[in-house]
Design a protein around this nucleic acid. Structure first.
Lengths: 207, 207
DNA sequence: GAACACACGTGAGCC
DNA sequence: TGGCTCACGTGTGTT
């Protein structure tokens, strides 16, 4: 190994006591402190902190940024979709909140700490190959986004859908889906499984 | 200074040639590489890159996270504000007893007169070029269809709109329209005239 | 050539 | 004890 040469060189450099060596030392110190402070400030911004490591700090920041970007894209996509739909035929589509059909038995599922807690799920059929889905769930953070995901994952033709909520109350979603009357039971089952799988996937560990 | 002592110590430690020194060296190398890769991955996530410095990478990431958080809070605030404004009465719109509404009713109307009596018309502006129209009127036959026609005749970009009603109560419509703040007076006037003209056309009260 | 940024090997401290 | 994280001073390369 060349360790011997290395050490000889360092000793020599130290022996001649170059005048700018101290400048270099303090400059390097400032640089290190600067990076350290930046990493500290970065850690303060990230809510999820696993470890205090420098590498872990950057790792958590990466995951946090990815999460924020994903949410941002979802919201922007939603807005774009809404705008394109509203200007699709320059005509107004008005979501009517009227259910004028027989009530199916309400179904309750998934009331653990997991995100989407369904209070009531009603799937009923209308004439004209239209099925109405009434979904009432507890309003939590990101519940709206998850509902959008669930509806999207159903791969059905959604005529119109909306999500209403009061300042302090549940979240009520009504969707008009183009489907035959015979499919309502299957559709209800698919919605239930979609919500359950989303809950299981999102919160694998919840104390 | 104690530099002399320091160097003496380092020289001695190097002279004894500890056996686990190589392990330590390669371990430290891996650790540095790990942090370096993390910083590289972090830089790949941040769109705004000023410099390639390690400190600058973290600095840009901090600013980017702050920007994302600010946008996120703004959007969440808008949603909350929107919800609070749309449900300012905060009364229970859950126990709505929805009367039957015939979706298959022909859209051609005007065969008999049932004027739209407006109880309240509120046009208020929100941020982001959004105007909220709150319309409360007496529930009569065909009133919902007429409201649809009225909104359609406005030729404005409707983000979303809905019409609520209780079994015994007025008919409440809330529409989010994309418009500038300066247009709210004009918009309100146009709504009023549209309703008035529709009433005059449907029920020509030949006085 | 001075300023800067980085990687290196190493000692100290902490589980 | 051994594994780890960090700060340190230093050599080297780039601007």
């Amino acid at each position: 190994m060349e360790n011997n040469n290395y050490w000889e060189k360092t000793i020599l450099l130290h022996e001649d006591s170059s005048p700018d060596a101290s400048k270099n030392i303090v400059s390097e110190r400032n640089r290190r402190k600067k990076l350290k402070d930046k990493l500290f400030a970065l850690r303060a911004l990230v809510p999820k902190i696993t470890k205090m490591d420098r590498a872990s700090i950057v790792k958590d920041a990466i995951e946090y940024i990815e999460e924020l970007q994903k949410q941002d894209r979802r919201i922007r996509g939603e807005i774009l979709e809404l705008e394109s739909k509203s200007s699709n035929k320059n005509s107004t589509h008005i979501d009517l909140q009227h259910e004028s059909f027989d009530f199916a038995k309400p179904t309750t599922l998934g009331y653990h700490s997991s995100p989407v807690d369904v209070l009531e799920l009603r799937v009923s059929s209308m004439r004209n190959k239209t099925v109405v889905v009434n979904l009432t769930c507890i309003k939590r953070r990101d519940t709206i986004l998850k509902l959008c995901d669930i509806f999207q994952s159903l791969n059905v033709k959604i005529i119109t859908a909306n999500i209403l909520t009061a300042s302090s109350g549940p979240l009520i979603s009504t969707a008009f889906i183009q489907a035959d009357e015979e499919e309502i039971d299957l559709l209800k089952l698919r919605i239930e499984t979609a919500i359950a799988s989303l809950n299981n996937r999102d919160s694998p560990m919840s104390s």
